[in-house]
């Protein structure tokens, strides 16, 4: 870096400056990139390979054949595959949205009302982040247990009826999304609280002088200024919220029936735990990856954070 900087100083023509800038940011993280590539590329390429052949460990001595995109078709054209895809989308987008909104609301509450206790409250709010998702899923399954859990007991005291939140398809899906939101919204809280605290004062004061109402201020001044940060928060939340496994595996086990089987649980069940269709699972894994890439691109597009931050 210092070497290229020196070159740039010595020959201050436009072309070499451009080249040295181009070079240095690539060289510095190169070891990191290489390590990442070594760790992630071989398994990725191997799973792409698996996804176009016909490995099925439940069939002994099955000759390995190239099957084109049959496995992808198996995931994308059958009822259970499409259902898993849809559940994945519902859970990840639903809980991402809920987590960002919750994060924003809590951040504003802390910003407006916490005063000197803000530090302490932020620490307390962060607790769910520190809990392992597995522990979280098990704790929720106890809390919601119809016979011993406090939530059904309270509902029973109020309404006289015992409920089982995970006992029906809609309830189970909402419960999984709630657990995801509960676990990951604290991250949105700290990101957005930091953003709110560091908003530029000029536009805010200008709006105050113009007589903006509280909601007008938030809607027309704060939120547009927070938009790039909201996008980043959304991307982080999406990455975290779409990695749902503990809740679906331990809290609902994909049930009732297959109501909460998302793509990752589908992969686990069809590839490992209930069947041996490794190639179908690999195809579903590649589809999950593509889905993740598309979603991130969509997030970036929606919020136009690249234009706002870098131009």
């Amino acid at each position: 870096m210092s070497a290229s900087g020196a070159t740039a100083l010595a020959t201050p023509n436009r072309r070499s400056v451009k080249r040295s800038i181009w070079r240095s940011p690539w060289l510095v993280p190169l070891p990191g990139f290489l390590l990442l590539a070594i760790l992630t590329l071989p398994p990725f390429l191997y799973s792409v390979y698996l996804s176009v052949i016909n490995i099925d460990v439940s069939v002994p001595l099955l000759p390995v054949r190239f099957v084109w995109l049959t496995n992808y078709a198996r995931v994308l054209t059958t009822a259970d595959g499409l259902h898993a895809l849809m559940i994945s989308l519902i859970i990840s987008f639903g809980s991402t949205f809920a987590a960002v909104v919750m994060g924003l609301v809590i951040a504003y509450l802390i910003h407006l009302f916490a005063g000197r206790l803000a530090g302490l409250i932020v620490v307390l709010v962060l607790v769910p982040l520190a809990v392992s998702p597995v522990a979280m899923a098990l704790v929720f399954s106890l809390i919601l247990d119809p016979l011993y859990g406090p939530v059904p007991q309270i509902v029973e005291m109020l309404t006289g009826e015992l409920i089982a939140p995970t006992g029906n398809a809609t309830g189970a899906l909402l419960t999984v999304m709630f657990v995801q939101t509960w676990q990951w919204s604290p991250l949105a809280v700290i990101l957005l609280l930091g953003g709110i605290k560091s908003l530029p004062r000029e536009p805010v004061e200008a709006a105050q002088i113009d007589g903006a109402s509280f909601w007008g201020m938030i809607w027309h001044v704060h939120l547009p200024l927070l938009r790039p940060l909201l996008a980043v928060t959304g991307i982080f939340e999406f990455i975290l919220c779409s990695q749902v496994f503990a809740a679906t595996d331990l809290l609902t086990n994909g049930g009732p029936g297959n109501a909460t089987v998302d793509l990752s649980l589908f992969i686990y069940k069809i590839g490992i735990s209930e069947s041996g269709q490794v190639s179908v699972a690999a195809a579903a894994g590649v589809i999950t990856l593509i889905l993740g890439l598309i979603s991130t691109a969509v997030w970036l597009k929606v919020a136009k954070w690249d234009t706002q931050i870098y131009r």
Binding site: G255, P256, G257, A259, S275
Partner: peptide
């Protein structure tokens, strides 16, 4: 494998789906 396929389906009977 066959048992697991049956199990998935009958759970949705027991839960009213």
């Amino acid at each position: 494998e066959m048992g697991d396929l049956i199990g998935e389906q009958i759970e949705s009977v027991f839960t009213g789906g």
